[in-house]
Simulated scan of single mutants.
Amino acid sequence: MKIWRLVIVTVMLAGCSATEVHLYTRYLSEADIDKVTTTLEQANYKVTTNTHAFPDTVNQSTILYSPFIKDETHLQGLIGSLSDNGWVIPNVEMLKSGNHWYSKDNVGLFLLPDGVKPKDKVTTRDLASKYQSRNCDTLVALELNEDNTYELSYSSKAVTHSEHLKGSWKMRSYPYIELTSLNRQWWFYFEIEQKIETDKISEVSIIEFKPLNQYTSFPGCSFASGVRI
């Protein structure tokens, strides 16, 4: 049955420009990403992956599609290909969710493994970003990279030592993260806080790191990053 479904989908799409699927991989394992990508490419879909955050309204596996999609049977073929590989898609919506728009002949594919909800879990991919200091007089940026390295950079302070500026980071046990310098002589511990703030334009989803101790390198500073909702 799976083979015949794949054949039907392939024939249906033959001769047509491939529908582009934007696969949001934030909550997927590498094995899941490879399997889904291979399955969809074999069915003649063009797959583009990203690690962007999910819209706040998406809390189950979802397809968001453009109203300009050339043939809605492509959606049925996409749903069928995913179903054959164990991914049930309970939610299919047109055009827009949160700040995510889809134009031309493309769709957004948001996959959530069983038991995972975006608001219940923070992953290393959620935390990998650039953060600015707040609640202190020191202007310093903290960048957490997806390869679990970090870098601190100061805007207006003469740095008397540099050993703490680069190192590695990890989520010790949610909601706590640990930064360790390259020479393993500096350790910084923070508590992760997620919240919504509102400025003059709109609401902003904030991730803030609250220091668990007073650190002389950035006294009193917390670090925050925000995304408009």
Rank of each mutant, 00 (worst) to 15 (best):
I3G: 11
W4F: 14
V11F: 15
L13I: 04
A14Y: 13
A14G: 03
L23C: 11
I33D: 02
I33M: 12
K35D: 13
K35P: 00
K46T: 10
K46L: 10
N50E: 05
T51S: 11
H52D: 09
F54G: 00
Q60G: 01
Q60S: 07
I63P: 04
Q76P: 00
W87T: 05
W87L: 09
V88R: 12
P90F: 10
V92E: 06
E93M: 08
E93A: 11
G98W: 02
D105Y: 03
V107L: 07
V107E: 07
L111R: 02
L112R: 03
K119F: 01
K121T: 12
V122T: 15
R125V: 11
D126T: 11
A128T: 09
K130S: 13
Y131D: 07
Q132A: 14
R134V: 06
L144Q: 08
N145P: 02
N145K: 15
D147H: 08
E151M: 11
S153Q: 06
S156V: 13
K157I: 14
K157H: 14
H161F: 07
L165K: 15
K166D: 09
K166H: 14
K166I: 08
R172S: 12
I177N: 04
I177T: 04
T180E: 15
R184H: 12
F190R: 00
I196Q: 12
I196E: 11
E197Q: 07
D199I: 04
K200L: 14
I201R: 08
I207P: 02
E208Y: 06
F209K: 03
Y215C: 05
F218E: 08
P219W: 06
S222D: 12
F223Y: 04
S225V: 13
G226M: 03
V227Q: 10
